[in-house]
Amino acid sequence: MGKTTLVLILLASVLIPTHILSGEDSVKTLEPEVNDVGLSIGQVPPAFILPDLYTGELVSLSDFLGKKTAFFMWASW
């Protein structure tokens, strides 16, 4: 193994995610072609009602009307 390869491997290992919303995406690593979302600019996204992770209080997409909101879907796995 050359020195450059070793350095690249070490760099790659540093980039592996340790935090839910950061780092390299595991799905992307596995299957780049699935990287697609069925929504487009200007659409009103489908409504949802989901519980708060801690309180269980039900929260609706429409509760965020009037504010710019960034939703991030993630998972523990």
Binding site: L21, D25, V27, E31, V34, N35, V37, L39, P45, L61, F64, K68, T69, A70, F71, F72, M73, W74, A75
Partner: peptide
């Protein structure tokens, strides 16, 4: 899949 960002 995840992660996905949806900005509204």
């Amino acid at each position: 899949f995840v992660p996905v960002g949806i900005f509204v």
